[in-house]
Nucleic acid binder design. Structure first.
Lengths: 111, 111
DNA sequence: CAAACAATCAACTAAAAGGTTGAATATATT
DNA sequence: AATATATTCAACCTTTTAGTTGATTGTTTG
């Protein structure tokens, strides 16, 4: 069956609030590493590492221009994750609905 | 601002394939710890720990009946996560659309 | 060319994650 | 009462994660 390991990486990457904040920062367009790091209280290096995690998860793309690295958001993995989670949610939703119906019917039959 | 740390826990819990498989197993209804653990190649204890992670994330509920612990799925956090991810995705989708429109307009003006 | 700047690399630390085995606890069964 | 079963607890190990500081690489600028 081999479940896609990319989902692991995506969810893992998204599970960290700093990384989610970095993604949000990129919503207003490209930004350099230093710019992205600026609002955080941790070191530039720490943010650089977070960026690499996002890059490995393909949630972020890097374009080098001279000494500057411009980062931007990539939608693919987010779409995939959304798809998985929606699918899963709907799956359970129908199961739970069926269960509820079942219980209601049995209850009706008993009265 | 205080971003909800529950999202961290949910995504973290979902980022592991064993835990996703456990959730899937529960889709056919309640199951005991041993039953849930059976298909995995790791020890019962390891699975027990995964279950505790899911429990802390409120993705799984436990009902004790004598020595048996019956586990079942809880939809709340999955719904929340789906909501967050959908919201985020749509947010970016519109940004990217706007950017594309902008570029197309500029292109049109130039010709 | 020298100094400043943008970013990573390298080495280290502390904590968390994921697994193991063995003991303990509580409940059922004979 | 003794034994078997279901589950967790406790201790331990290894790997990964998230952070630090200091050195290094490459690019720009005075």
């Amino acid at each position: 069956m081999s479940v896609p390991r990319t989902l692991d990486r995506t969810l893992q990457a998204l599970a960290d609030p700093t990384r989610r904040a970095i993604l949000q920062r990129l919503s207003s367009g490209e930004a350099r590493v230093t710019e992205v790091a600026e609002p955080f209280r941790m070191s530039l290096n720490a943010v650089s590492k977070h960026i690499m995690v996002l890059e490995r998860a393909k949630l972020v793309k890097r374009r080098k221009e001279g000494r500057d690295h411009y980062l931007s958001y990539l939608p693919g993995p987010m779409d995939e994750a959304a798809e998985w989670i929606e699918h899963t949610r709907n799956f359970w939703s129908s199961r739970l609905d069926a269960l509820e119906r079942l219980l209601r019917d049995e209850d009706a039959k008993r009265t």
